[in-house]
Write a protein that binds this DNA or RNA. Sequence first.
DNA 1: TTTAATTACGACTAATTTTAACGTATTTAT
DNA 2: ATAAATACGTTAAAATTAGTCGTAATTAAA
Lengths: 155, 155
Amino acid sequence: MTKLNRKIEYSLMALQYIQQRQPSSKVTAKEVSDSVQAPFDVIARVMQIMAQKALLISEQGASGGYRLNQDLKNVSLFQLFEMIEGPTALVKCISEDGVCDNETSCNVASPLKSLNTKLNTFFKNIPLSELLAGEDSAADSITTNGERAKDLNHV
Amino acid sequence: MTKLNRKIEYSLMALQYIQQRQPSSKVTAKEVSDSVQAPFDVIARVMQIMAQKALLISEQGASGGYRLNQDLKNVSLFQLFEMIEGPTALVKCISEDGVCDNETSCNVASPLKSLNTKLNTFFKNIPLSELLAGEDSAADSITTNGERAKDLNHV
DNA sequence: TTTAATTACGACTAATTTTAACGTATTTAT
DNA sequence: ATAAATACGTTAAAATTAGTCGTAATTAAA
């Protein structure tokens, strides 16, 4: 349960790196992969995805790179999950309709659906800015109350 | 992110079946596997684990079976996770100490550790009784506030 | 006391998912 | 032109998960 996808990790690392470097400085995938000691290909890939999804802006060409396109206050962890992994769910039968061939005999479908919703809410209430806040100890200030992290429109 | 382990699913199915059948009636693994149309071996296995962990009581022999040994109000979803999967974490470096060979270059260790804690709290606040309550719509009443699901001592 | 039903548990195989690597194309500053 | 970077599809390897098989131990009942 709840193991973090490696791609998500790399995304967070990249965002953290960009955020810490400068408000809006340009950063290359190589720079990030060197810094966090992760395979270049994978870092490059997730940054491309984040650019596709408008979280980053990419500039191609010789002195290209990426920069933030959104205030991380307005992007939730849930949104990052969806960007990188696409729509997911606790169990397949929730996301893919009609996949579960024994919905009649399944006695936990409704509980799991409800749990899935709650969990999504949990992640929706964590803005990336808060998750990544402060390299070391500041990150402990995460709370899950109230509403934050407004929806991104074009993701 | 957050895909539910199949074993956990089966555990929940078994618990749901037991709970719905009778407060404390005896139930066999076969009965459960037939009812929820899951492979007998796997159902049997998770029920054995739950018996080991004192969530169920098992009776061996010809007319043996399982029954609840705990009020599900006092057992959290988090505890079930730990029973079935053992200690887990969002990322390996949290659980296994010293596994992460580049802790120095990792810029998200602290945020993820914090997130991991929050998530554990989330699951600790969901008693199995609440998760499994009401076959159909009643399960929507899950909330995550306040403290519930006291610790089990011998797990 | 044999038989049948059941829990108990380890080991193995198969399937799926995840992760990483490769190859090639495109863009653009120099 | 060239070099450095993004873009992206395909494939291969690794790891994890899911399921099966085999066998032992326990116990009620015939």
